[in-house]
C-alpha cells in the first residue's frame, strides 16, 4: 500500500516535472525542472530495482546535466540573448493529438510487453549462469565488458566523437564572445573543494573497484570523477587553455585505445576478437575507460560552457 503510494508519487513527480521542464515560461525554470527530473529518475530506477542505473542517473543528473545546461544557458545570455529564451511556443493544432496518440501507443506497447507471457530472457539467464565462472559479481559489468564488449567499446567511441565534434565547433570562429563568467571568490568554495575533490576521487575509485562485484562500474566512476573536474572548472581552478595538453589528450583516448588494443590481442593467439585475457585486463580497461569518460565529459562541459577564466580580480 505504502509502496504503491510511494511509486505513485514518484510517477506523479516525474510527469509534472517533465511538463514543467518543457512548457514553463522561463527557460531557467525549465532547466531546474529538468535537473530535478533527472534526480527523480534516479529514485524511479531505485524503485524499479536497478541500482546501477540509479547511480548512473545520479552521477549524471546531479552533477553534469545541470551544470551543462546552466553554463550553456549562461553562455546564451552572455552572447546577448534577450528575446529567444522566452520565445513563445509554436502554435500547432496537431501537437496535442500527436502527443496523446504517441503516448497511448507507447503505453499500449509497454503494457502489452509487460503483460505478455514471455519466457525469461535467455540472454539474461546465460549472463547469470556464466558470470560466476569469470569471478564477477555484477551482471551488468559482465554484460558490458565480457559478453557484449563491442557495444561498450563503440559507446566510448561515441563519447569521443561527440567530444571531437564539439571541440571542432568550439575551436573555429572567433571566440571573443565567450561568456564572461564570474568565479565565486569566497574562501568557502575553497573549503568545499578541498573536501569534495579528494572525496570524489576516492569514491570514484571505490565505484570502479566495486563495479566488478556490486553496484558501480567504469561509467559511474567516470561520471563522478568528471563531476570533480566540473567543480574545478566552475570554480576557475582549471580553465579551457589547460585542457589542451598532451596528457589530457592521452587521457581522452586511454579507454578506446586500451580497449581496442587489448581486444585485438586475442587474435594473435587464435581466440575471438575482444576476448578479455583475464581479470587484469578487465581492471585495466575499466580504469582506462573511467579516465577517458571523465576527461571527455569534463572537456565536453568546458566546450559547451566555453569557459574562460575571468581576469577581473
Amino acid at each position: 500500500m505504502m509502496a504503491l503510494l510511494l511509486d505513485g508519487l514518484i510517477v506523479l513527480a516525474l510527469v509534472s516535472l517533465a511538463v514543467q521542464a518543457i512548457s514553463g515560461r522561463s527557460l531557467f525554470r525549465g532547466i531546474i525542472h529538468f535537473v530535478v527530473f533527472g534526480l527523480t529518475m534516479a529514485l524511479a530506477w531505485a524503485r524499479i530495482g536497478a541500482p546501477d542505473l540509479a547511480m548512473a542517473e545520479a552521477a549524471i543528473g546531479a552533477g553534469l546535466t545541470g551544470a551543462l545546461m546552466m553554463v550553456a544557458y549562461r553562455r546564451l545570455v552572455a552572447q546577448g540573448d534577450n528575446h529567444s529564451p522566452r520565445a513563445p511556443a509554436q502554435k500547432s493544432r496537431l501537437a496535442i493529438p500527436i502527443a496523446v496518440g504517441s503516448g497511448l501507443l507507447v503505453g499500449v506497447i509497454g503494457l502489452g510487453a509487460l503483460l505478455a507471457d514471455n519466457p525469461p530472457g535467455e540472454a539474461g539467464l546465460i549472463v547469470l549462469e556464466t558470470l560466476p565462472e569469470y569471478g564477477l559479481g555484477n551482471a551488468i559489468t559482465g554484460v558490458l565488458l565480457l559478453f557484449r564488449g563491442l557495444d561498450t567499446l563503440l559507446e566510448i567511441a561515441v563519447l569521443l566523437t561527440a567530444l571531437l565534434a564539439a571541440r571542432a565547433l568550439a575551436g573555429t570562429g572567433d571566440s571573443s564572445a565567450t561568456a564572461r563568467t564570474q568565479h565565486p571568490e569566497t574562501p568557502l568554495v575553497g573549503a568545499l573543494l578541498a573536501v569534495v575533490i579528494p572525496l570524489t576521487i576516492l569514491v570514484a575509485v571505490h565505484l570502479l573497484r566495486a563495479g566488478t562485484h556490486e553496484t558501480g562500474g567504469a561509467f559511474q566512476a567516470g561520471a563522478v570523477l568528471a563531476a570533480a573536474g566540473v567543480l574545478l572548472v566552475l570554480s576557475g581552478r582549471v580553465s579551457r587553455t589547460d585542457t589542451a595538453g598532451p596528457l589530457v589528450r592521452l587521457g581522452i583516448l586511454a579507454g578506446l585505445s586500451a580497449f581496442i588494443l587489448i581486444g585485438l590481442m586475442p587474435l594473435l593467439y587464435g581466440e575471438a576478437l575482444l576476448t578479455l585475457p583475464g581479470m587484469w585486463s578487465i581492471y585495466l580497461i575499466e580504469t582506462a575507460m573511467m579516465v577517458s569518460i571523465a576527461a571527455a565529459l569534463i572537456l565536453l562541459f568546458a566546450d559547451a560552457g566555453g569557459l574562460k577564466r575571468d581576469r577581473r580580480g
Partner: peptide, 28 residues
C-alpha cells in the same frame, strides 16, 4: 528495499549537490 548500493547513490547526491549552486552563482 535492502539495497545498500542506494547509500552510495545518496553519497553521490550530497557530494554533487553543490555543483548546481556553483554553476548558478556564475550566472551573470
Amino acid at each position: 528495499m535492502a539495497m545498500p548500493a542506494l547509500r552510495h547513490v545518496a553519497l553521490l547526491f550530497v557530494m554533487l549537490a553543490s555543483i548546481l549552486s556553483l554553476a548558478f552563482v556564475g550566472l551573470p
